[in-house]
């Protein structure tokens, strides 16, 4: 490949340099907007207190017998993501069948389903969470609903791809012996897709637990709420212990869910 470079036609070389110039212009513009000089002059002392706080995490916050503590916050986060995954894993099944091309005869049906799913996907979950907070009030329930609705976009897409890749044989055999549509679904489609569905749901659960830690920043329950309070009063040792808890929780759930996924498939 490399030695043919010298013989590149001039038009391609012009295109190459043009794209370089465009990229440089974009970078010039982008770095202009960053206001590096706007960084606070007190950064050094702030940094020192942060490092000091992180080195001495507030261990007393881990467990407080009566009240809000780290373990309860993490448990809330875990529960929000479990429930959110449940809700979306069930809600997305009809969407998945709607969006898969081999379940409906007309392409417009599955096409409209796919478009709807990608619209759901581009909505950030934090915005969905804010909308649900306005509806059901702040708290973990809003977080569950936000994760449940937002995850439909991705899960239903993955589910529908699974449905599209199933073996048609059992389906045709059942149709040939006179099974109706519901029976075909129950005995030919569902058994083929369930393991994949479970595996994708677990994968989404891993994503959801990351989101659940941030939902509290806008008031939708979980560990984010005490974190944002601790950040507002610059209580760095508490921030340190919360971050440590988040890292441990996410690492553990990643390992467990990865093991489960390997066993399922």
């Amino acid at each position: 490949m490399r030695d043919t470079r010298a013989y590149k036609p001039i038009s391609r070389r012009i295109r190459f340099w043009l794209s370089i110039i465009v990229i440089l212009a974009i970078y010039y513009w982008a770095f202009q907007g960053m206001h590096f000089e706007g960084v606070q002059s007190t950064t050094k002392t702030v940094m020192l207190s942060i490092i000091n706080g992180f080195l001495h995490p507030d261990w007393s916050y881990v467990y407080i017998p009566d009240g809000e503590d780290l373990l309860r916050g993490l448990l809330d986060t875990l529960i929000i993501s479990i429930l959110g995954t449940f809700v979306s894993a069930i809600l997305c099944i009809p969407f998945a069948f709607w969006a898969s091309t081999n379940m409906s005869r007309r392409l417009t049906v599955s096409g409209s389903g796919k478009i709807l799913l990608s619209v759901i996907r581009v909505f950030p979950e934090i915005i969905v969470a804010i909308l649900f907070i306005k509806a059901v009030g702040p708290g973990a329930f809003a977080g569950v609903l936000a994760l449940g609705i937002h995850s439909i976009g991705m899960l239903a897409k993955l589910y529908s791809e699974t449905i599209e890749s199933i073996d048609r044989g059992p389906q045709e055999a059942l149709l040939a012996c006179g099974a109706n549509r519901l029976q075909v679904l129950r005995y030919a489609v569902i058994p083929q897709v369930i393991p994949q569905f479970l595996s994708y749901s677990l994968y989404r659960f891993e994503i959801n637990i990351r989101s659940a830690t941030t939902l509290g920043l806008v008031g939708a329950g979980g560990i984010g709420t005490p974190l944002i309070f601790a950040l507002q009063v610059r209580n760095w040792s508490r921030v340190g212990v919360i971050l440590l808890g988040v890292v441990i929780l996410i690492t553990l759930t990643d390992i467990i869910s990865g093991k489960l996924r390997k066993r399922i498939i």
Binding site: H35, R210, S211, G224, V247
Partner: peptide, 21 residues
């Protein structure tokens, strides 16, 4: 990779002040 983007952002806002930086 375990720390989500918004957590990073809230920490850096507390460190460096509100703004695009």
């Amino acid at each position: 990779r375990t720390i989500p983007d918004l957590l990073f952002a809230s920490i850096f806002v507390a460190m460096f002040g509100i703004g695009p930086f």
